[in-house]
Amino acid sequence: MKNDAIDAAVAELALVRDSDLRGAARTPAADALLAKIVAKEVREPVRVDRAPRFLLAGAALAVVAGVLVFAFAGTNREQTASAATVLRHAGTIARKQPPVVLQPGQFVYTRSRNLWTVTTVLSGKSFTVLEPHSREIWLGPTGGRLHEVTGRPTFLTLQDRETWLALGRPQTTVTGESDNKLDPMPRPTLPTDPGTLYAQLHKQAEANGNGVDAEMFTLVGDALRETGASPEQRAALYDVAARIPGVRLLGRVLDPPGRRGTAVVLDNEHNHVRNTLIFDPETSLLLAEQETALPGGQAPAGKLIGYAVYLEQGVVSSMNARPAR
């Protein structure tokens, strides 16, 4: 009996055929399930990789301590008001920037340096390390590529190292080079009306347990980086940031590569983390992000627990090309 005949006979037994379900993915039931799933808190039971939702660069602690020399010294209320003014101005700048329109075969290239925490749970105990990365990403309408070099991790605290020793020195992270294909760059779907965008992000943020304001600030940061947001969308994002209660202006700073930037911060009292965004006042482009520990959290207060520094960006014509320097 031929294989094809057997396979066809088995196919005959299918109680439901895919053609019977055509269109099911766009029904209200599918929409409701999707909304229910993405509202769930994301938990990794064994290993927690903390994506870089933030930050500055390698010597960032020194930067925070010493290079943010133009930090404002007003009251919180004054700083909040100033932050709103500066962020709205950044939105105005963003709106004037030329849109990035990719032709077939073109990609947006971004080079960055990142650090984030990786928590490993073993035998009911956990330890956390800080994992550094050098990252190059190519994003385009036909696909993309992520090239990453993971550096040697360091323990978040001495206690983490002691836990690691007690567990028999298990592998912490995988260092070295990786190269992966990416799906086509998703089309940005953010509304350009600030009010509508605020309502949308607020709704998303409500599902998060870390506080609505802090999550909204994070969502704004997420949308500003590597997402291909249009000038209008970027303008709306800055406008939304200006409306988030608790966002304060840190002032003019130098980021780790020495670029002038404007820093705004939001302290998250739920997870005891200070989030900082640094953007270029001339172009409104995001230069760097940073997360530092606040008192009351797992890490010592002031400890840098994550950063991302966006070093280079441009449009290139292949997934191996880099912008001309």
């Binding site: 993405v38 994301v42 994506a51 990786s178 997420d222 590597e226």
Partner: peptide, 10 residues
């Protein structure tokens, strides 16, 4: 291991 931002992740 691709770092996923919240928006990109969704």
């Amino acid at each position: 291991r691709i770092p996923q931002t919240a928006v990109a992740r969704r």
